[in-house]
Simulated assay, not measured.
Amino acid sequence: MANQAAILDQSHGPLVIKDIPVPQCHPTEVLVKVKAVATNAADWKIYQGHFPQVLPALLGCDVAGEVAEVGRSVIGLNVGDRVAGFTQQQMVGMQSMMATGSVASDIRHGGYQKFVPMLPRMIFKVPDSVLDEIATTFGCSFFTAAAGVFKSLGFPFPIPEGAPVREKVLVWGAASAVGAFAVQLLTACHVEVIAVCSAKNFDYVRSLGASHVIDYRGGDVVTQLSGQDLKVKKAFDAISSHETCNACLDIVGEGGIVADVQFLEALRRPGIEMEHINVVDILGEAQAPLLSSLINDWIPKFVATGILKGVQSKIYSGGLNDIDQAIRDHRDGKIAGKAVITGI
């Protein structure tokens, strides 16, 4: 087997295509032959030097592909299985940041290569009816949304079947990749979702299950909610700027809870819970029962039945050579949802 990777060896890029050794498959891993990858915000932030990063680095968290080798301790996966999920790249980076204050150079775990080692607890088997282009969007964004819904907001898992709609939850940034998965997961939890996004995405978020839509460009969101007699005590802020987080805090009020995807401790207010959504919270060993049920049962079932639809994306078909442009387009706001690169 020959391996190539799109490597970041200088801040601001461009990525450079290099021949590198095929990563060794450790006993607890599977080696995946990559078919498609998807960008996420962490990629372009590292690309731009927003984090202290030791170079060279191999980016990429979201992968779909085929199992090429199975570690001797792994059960339930076989060579040839179609899989998708989340590489160890971001988790290893976070651990390095916490230990040393910077992200160590890592050219083993990134998804932007032809072969990548992955942990079974972070991947799922892809149903035959689902394309790689859809499956690869179920990476960082899905697990971040799951951490927000089940850990930060406290919705139960396994999800009770046939339960009545219990409450309303506001999702700000509902058309973003994380927000779109949050809408789908909350809908599956029998929640009445109020989606805040631009008007051009109203039909899209309704197709994901949103019951109400609010245009954040159409005037004060708090006023719009009041005009529609929509009251919520829980909000999922998938954007988490100072502006959006403050608006969510205003909306839920005292006794409410806001889940945010950034560290915004300075905005914390008495009487309102703020829960930072950390994807590592759901990927660690401590959450193995929840993660195992999500990965092995829930995701494949609901992807196959269409309840989970993935997220909107722009397709790039040029393989490793297209990743640099896809990251730049994601950075520049030219991507709705995900950039998906095929032909790896």
Rank of each mutant, 00 (worst) to 15 (best):
P14S: 09
F236K: 07
F143V: 10
R121G: 12
E273I: 14
S105F: 06
Q325D: 12
I134E: 02
H276N: 13
I123N: 00
A99P: 02
V222E: 14
I295M: 15
A288G: 06
F155I: 10
E66C: 08
G219E: 08
V183Y: 03
V63N: 06
T137P: 05
R121W: 04
F115V: 11
D229Q: 15
V340K: 01
A238R: 02
I134T: 15
V280F: 13
H12G: 14
I335P: 06
R268N: 13
S96Y: 00
A235G: 07
T144C: 11
Q53T: 15
A288D: 14
I214E: 03
P156S: 13
G219C: 10
S292N: 14
R217E: 12
E69C: 10
M98W: 07
P158Y: 06
M1H: 07
C248S: 07
R268F: 07
A68P: 05
G284K: 10
V67Y: 04
L290E: 00
V178F: 05
A182T: 08
D215H: 05
Q10D: 09
G110N: 04
D128C: 00
K338D: 04
F143W: 15
V340S: 01
E275P: 01
A104C: 11
Y216C: 10
L58Y: 03
Q90P: 05
K33Q: 15
L225Y: 02
N296K: 14
D281N: 15
V222K: 14
C245R: 03
V83I: 15
D324I: 09
V193D: 05
S176M: 09
A210V: 08
A199H: 11
P127Y: 02
E273K: 14
P127A: 06
Q184P: 08
T187M: 06
V261I: 15
A41W: 01
A68I: 07
P14A: 10
Q24F: 10
S102I: 08
